[in-house]
Design a protein around this nucleic acid. Structure first.
Lengths: 232, 232
DNA sequence: TGTACATCAGTGAACGCGCGTTCACTGATGTAC
DNA sequence: TGTACATCAGTGAACGCGCGTTCACTGATGTAC
């Protein structure tokens, strides 16, 4: 069953709307996304948009999903670490991909990880699966490193306090992960550190360094080392 | 020279505008701050606001400054570490204050560290001094810990790569700090880690843990340990 | 202490703007026979 | 292959809304004598 002309055009137009939406959001911030502005730039009446999205919220929801897809896709350009690979290096590469994606798609990063768009409640039930997909990718990488790449004298971690251990165990049980709490902790630590650097970099708070590349690299290498994984 | 009634009322009204502005921003996000909404809630004509702020941008600039003041004030409730104190613990306390301030003033955090408000360019020349004040507080704490509280077998840090070292040295020279590059690095690492946890916590991305308190504490203690400072 | 004048907080109406959304419509594309 | 009908993308006008900002004004507060 081949696509009709109409279907093809519909998809093109839909994509055009989204692309312009991202462009507008990059200029004016997610909160000020305007259907009329998009329509204007497409040289189309403002009502036309409503053939493609029920309303503004529907468009925003769609964009949120796409942002997650885009991020997952960016991380998945990296092949999963094969058994004979350097697992620490794999984590480093993942981190770099995460950062590059954020720097190249600041609008997408802002929509997903920025302050919530007022009047638009991104329903967490819809987006949670996407969010956890991101974490799963990192968790896998840390788990692999933990299993295959551990230092002899490790873990480098002091014992995890009870309360935190319980919380980690709860997440592991709920999501049916097959990892020790320490690995989930390391994953979360890695993710928060990654996120801290990138979010400050994106609002120019690291501008004092010139560019944050070297800082990022050094900190990520320390993260690996401190996690007790063998350095490359 | 005592204040006249008029002056007193003026200050009260000005404060009332700001307070309501924060309240509105907490509800609708910084981008949607509306002078008319504030005036409405004050049961005053919308034009009245213009007796106090030249325009919306002026109000936003003022609020930005206040947010920084508020944060600095929060951190300064902690006495500077005295010579006989535990310096690692001092850093921990500072971190907790930073987090508490952010959790209790999410609107202020969002305005200063969130995505820039579209159409409002916070002039960096005005705000940079405030931003660096925050960093100075942390830098002092790390410097004190470094000098007085160092482990014998340390520094725990691998050698800093040339490029990063240059960047750090440049900042140190420019700002006339009196610290080795490693201390500035540790400060920046601490700040980015702190920031990563808090900004994710504020957008509920750490909700999977229930509350992030234990995670925060554990990671901050690891930070101290990894920095090579003596643990309490 | 009282009076004349200056200051200035707040008013209410108006401006022009862009927004999301609805609605009855036109005309092109697709389909069934 | 041609025709009648169904689908549906896009139109243009209209709705009611809230916004920032300006302006000439009123009336209360403050000051100089």
């Amino acid at each position: 069953m081949t696509k009709t002309l109409r279907e093809e055009r519909r998809e093109e137009t839909l994509q055009m709307i989204k692309n312009l939406a991202w462009q507008k959001m990059a200029e004016n911030g997610p909160a000020n996304l305007s259907l009329r502005a998009i329509a204007r730039q497409m040289r189309v009446s403002s009502a036309a948009i409503y053939r493609y999205f029920e309303n503004r919220d529907a468009l925003l929801t769609e964009l949120c999903k796409d942002a997650y897809y885009s991020q997952v896709a960016a991380l998945q350009t990296l092949e999963p670490a094969a058994a004979d690979e350097n697992y620490s290096e794999h984590i480093l590469k993942l981190s770099r991909l995460y950062r590059q994606w954020a720097l190249q798609n600041p609008e997408k990063f802002a929509l997903v990880y920025g302050a919530p768009v007022p009047g638009f409640r991104q329903s967490w039930e819809v987006l949670a699966p996407f969010a956890s997909q991101i974490m799963d990718i990192f968790l896998e990488a840390f788990q692999a490193a933990w299993q295959h790449d551990q230092n002899e004298e490790h873990p480098d971690l002091p014992p995890i306090p009870d309360r935190l251990k319980q919380q980690l165990a709860h997440v592991i049980a709920q999501r049916k992960y097959n990892v020790p709490p320490a690995v989930l902790y390391l994953t979360l630590e890695g993710w928060t550190r990654l996120h801290g650097i990138i979010s400050l970099e994106l609002i120019d708070q690291l501008a004092l360094l010139g560019d944050a590349e070297a800082f990022f690299e050094y900190q990520m290498q320390n993260l690996i080392r401190q996690s007790g994984f063998v350095q490359s």
